[in-house]
Design a protein around this nucleic acid. Structure first.
Length: 291
DNA sequence: TCCCAGGCTTGGT
DNA sequence: ACCAAGCATGGG
């Protein structure tokens, strides 16, 4: 068991679950004030719960992974500084977005799972993305157990299918009953390219933001939006700023003064340099909340 | 029945 | 360089 101490305004799992950046994390409520959080990423699993005030208990075999996953190696003061800059920004939409969503953090997910998940996310709804990603794990991933509490309970989960496990399927096997639709061919080709060495996931982790985006966009089925999501949630390149349909609505409805996307991005990149991804995350969540 | 969903590829100007 | 059509599939 691992104990950490961090206030809810700097770490709020409920907000993270609602953030749209993750599709295999959920809360299991037991009673009014008792419940467990579960999260899975790649072949890793964790359960954790809020004890009191700032205290949290985590159960996992891979604490190193999960501490990094929840961005807990980043000093708490870092998010405090982001929030302070936002509150002093004169950007009322963003300030409102922050007060509605304090405690959300930018995760560092398993890169392979993140890449496949956001290929699935295109032209799709978050509810269906969650069903599809979890369905892929149950159908093609390897089952495993981990000890999920202090009395040694074994908890079953499915690891995310590896590139090898997917590469060995036919297109119809991968497409059948998975709700992947036309995205199945993207995922199959990528799995096979990784298996035969034509594409390297490891190399991605050594690249700058610009290099990572252009490398990701060489993947069949990955464009600017998915590349930015993977750069942000898989590579933790905080200058990433994914623009999807919600962000387009924000730009035209809530930031009209910037006329076009390019002028708007100049504003974002200059005012929030180094944490654009966090700003985007808050805006994205808030726009969906006020609908 | 029509429209949309954390878009991308393709083929036309 | 820009633009529209087509794309699988489930849900409103």
């Amino acid at each position: 068991m691992e104990k950490i101490y961090i206030p809810k305004h700097l770490f709020n799992p409920d907000k993270i679950i609602d953030s749209g950046q993750v599709f295999r994390m959920h809360y299991e409520r037991i009673s009014a004030d008792l419940g467990w959080y579960y999260a899975y990423s790649g072949n890793h699993a964790v359960s954790f719960r809020h004890i009191r005030d700032d205290e949290w208990n985590f159960y996992t075999e891979d604490w190193e992974f999960w501490r990094d996953y929840f961005d807990l190696n980043t000093a708490p003061s870092t998010y405090s500084e982001y929030n302070e800059k936002i509150r002093k920004s004169n950007d009322q939409f963003l300030i409102n977005a922050l007060s509605a969503n304090s405690g959300v953090r930018i995760l560092k997910q398993d890169l392979w799972e993140c890449l496949v998940s956001f290929i699935i996310s295109q032209q799709n709804s978050i509810r269906k993305i969650i069903k599809t990603v979890n369905g892929l794990c149950e159908r093609f991933g390897t089952p495993r157990v981990f000890i999920s509490d202090s009395v040694g309970t074994y908890h079953l989960y499915y690891m995310f299918p590896t590139p090898e496990q997917i590469a060995n399927l036919s297109l119809s096997e991968l497409q059948g009953g998975t709700m992947l639709g036309y995205r199945a061919q993207y995922i199959l080709k990528l799995s096979r390219d990784i298996e035969n060495g034509k594409f390297s996931l490891d190399r991605l982790t050594e690249l700058s933001y610009e290099e990572a985006i252009s490398e990701l966009k060489t993947i069949y089925g990955v464009g600017d939006k998915v590349a930015n999501c993977v750069a942000l949630y898989g590579l933790h390149l905080m200058e990433s700023y994914p623009i999807d349909t919600w962000m387009e609505k924000i730009i035209t409805q809530d930031y009209k003064q910037y006329k076009d996307t390019q002028k708007y991005m100049e504003y974002i990149n200059s005012k929030y340099a180094g944490f654009q991804g966090y700003v985007q995350q808050l805006q994205f969540m808030y726009k969906r909340q006020i609908l």
